[in-house]
C-alpha cells in the first residue's frame, strides 16, 4: 500500500451538527422576532439590527486579528450576539450607541475572556446593561408601535406595559401577544418568540428545561402574590430572556438539575425585581446574576458516574 493511512483516535464518524449549524438555527429562530420588530417599529428597526450585527461581526474579526488568534467569524456566534443585542434595544436608540453596545459585547465580554464558550456572562445582556447605565434616557425611551405613520421617533413615545402597570394602567392581552406595545425591538411580540422557541426545541438546539422552568417560576410567583399571570408572562423581556438569553450554552449550567436550579433562580429574581425593586423590568439583571452563579450551581448539581451509588452500598 503506497498511500499513507490516516490514524486517529476513535470515533471515526461524527454527527452532522456543528457549532455553525447551531448558531444558524438560533438565527433562523430569531427571524420571526426580527420580522415582527420591522412590522411593528418600522424600517428603523431593520437599520438598528443591521448596525449591531455588522459591528459585532467586525469587532469579532478585528479583535481576533489583533490578538493573533484564528478567525472565528464563520461560526456565526457574533451574528447571534449582534441580533440578540438589537432585539434588546429600543428602536429610537442612536445607532452609534448601539454599535458601542456591539463592541462591548464582543470585545470586552466575549473575546477578552477567551472567545466563544469562555465568557462568563451573556455578551448581549451585559452590553445591554452597560448601555442602560451609560445612556439611561435613550435606553428607556420607547417608540409607540407604528410611530412611523405619525412622525419622528422621539416625538411619538409611550411607556412599556410593565411601566404602565406600575402606574395602574393595563394593556390588552392581544396587544401583548402580537407585540403592539412599547418595548425593546424583539421583546414585544410573544407570538414570534414562541414560534422561535418551538423551532429551537424541535431542532433540539435547546432543551425546554430552562424556558419552561423560568416561565413556570414567574407564573407560580405571580399566583402566590395575586398578580395577573398572563400579563406577567407576556410583558417585558421574559419570553425573549427565557427562550433566547437564559438558554445560552456558555452561561447556563450543562446538566439538567443545574438548569432547573438556574431557571428557578432567574424566575424568582425577575419577579422580585419587577414587583419589589425600583425598576420596572428585571429579566436582564436576573439572568446576569444567575450567569455568575453558574459555576456554583454546577458544582452542587453535577451528576454522579453510573454505578457509583451501588459501589458505595456494596
Amino acid at each position: 500500500m503506497e498511500e499513507k493511512l490516516i490514524v486517529s483516535a476513535s470515533p471515526h464518524i461524527r454527527a452532522k451538527t456543528t457549532t455553525t449549524n447551531i448558531m444558524l438555527d438560533v438565527i433562523i429562530a430569531l427571524m420571526p422576532a426580527v420580522v415582527a420588530s420591522i412590522i411593528i417599529f418600522g424600517f428603523r428597526a431593520l437599520m438598528i439590527i443591521a448596525d449591531t450585527v455588522l459591528v459585532a461581526v467586525l469587532a469579532e474579526f478585528l479583535s481576533r486579528k489583533v490578538m493573533k488568534r484564528e478567525n472565528t467569524v464563520t461560526d456565526l456566534s457574533a451574528v447571534v450576539t449582534g441580533l440578540l443585542l438589537a432585539l434588546n434595544l429600543p428602536v429610537g436608540i442612536n445607532p452609534i450607541f448601539a454599535a458601542f453596545g456591539s463592541v462591548v459585547a464582543i470585545v470586552v465580554v466575549k473575546q477578552m475572556f477567551g472567545g466563544i464558550g469562555n465568557n462568563f456572562v451573556n455578551p448581549a445582556l451585559a452590553a445591554r446593561i452597560i448601555l442602560l447605565s451609560s445612556f439611561p434616557t435613550a435606553m428607556t425611551t420607547w417608540a409607540k408601535p407604528f410611530w412611523f405613520r405619525e412622525g419622528a421617533v422621539d416625538a411619538v413615545t409611550t411607556a412599556t406595559p410593565l411601566a404602565m402597570y406600575a402606574n395602574g394602567e393595563t394593556t390588552s392581552l392581544s396587544d401583548l401577544f402580537l407585540g403592539t406595545t412599547g418595548g425593546c425591538l424583539g421583546e414585544t411580540c410573544a407570538l414570534a418568540l414562541i414560534i422561535g422557541g418551538a423551532y429551537l426545541m424541535i431542532r433540539r438546539v435547546i432543551s425546554p428545561v430552562i424556558p419552561l422552568t423560568y416561565i413556570g417560576t414567574v407564573a407560580i410567583m405571580s399566583l402566590i402574590f395575586g398578580q395577573d399571570i398572563l400579563f406577567q408572562l407576556l410583558s417585558g423581556g421574559l419570553l425573549l430572556g427565557a427562550i433566547f438569553m437564559a438558554t445560552d450554552y456558555t452561561t447556563s449550567p450543562i446538566n439538567t438539575k443545574g438548569k432547573v436550579v438556574f431557571a428557578i433562580g432567574c424566575g424568582v429574581l425577575t419577579f422580585l425585581i419587577r414587583n419589589f425593586a425600583n425598576l420596572p423590568e428585571g429579566v436582564s439583571f436576573s439572568i446576569l446574576i444567575m450567569n455568575i452563579l453558574v459555576p456554583l450551581i454546577e458544582r452542587a448539581t453535577n451528576p454522579r458516574p453510573f454505578g457509583e451509588k451501588e459501589s458505595k452500598n456494596a
Binding site: 472565528t72 456566534s77 464558550g117 469562555n118 450543562i254 454522579r304 458516574p305 453510573f306
Partner: peptide, 20 residues
C-alpha cells in the same frame, strides 16, 4: 473548534459522566 458548553457530551454519556 472551541467548546461552546452545549452539553451534548454530558447528555450522551451512557455512564453519566461529564466529558467536557
Amino acid at each position: 473548534t472551541d467548546c461552546i458548553r452545549c452539553g451534548r457530551c454530558v447528555q450522551s454519556c451512557p455512564l453519566s459522566l461529564m466529558p467536557t
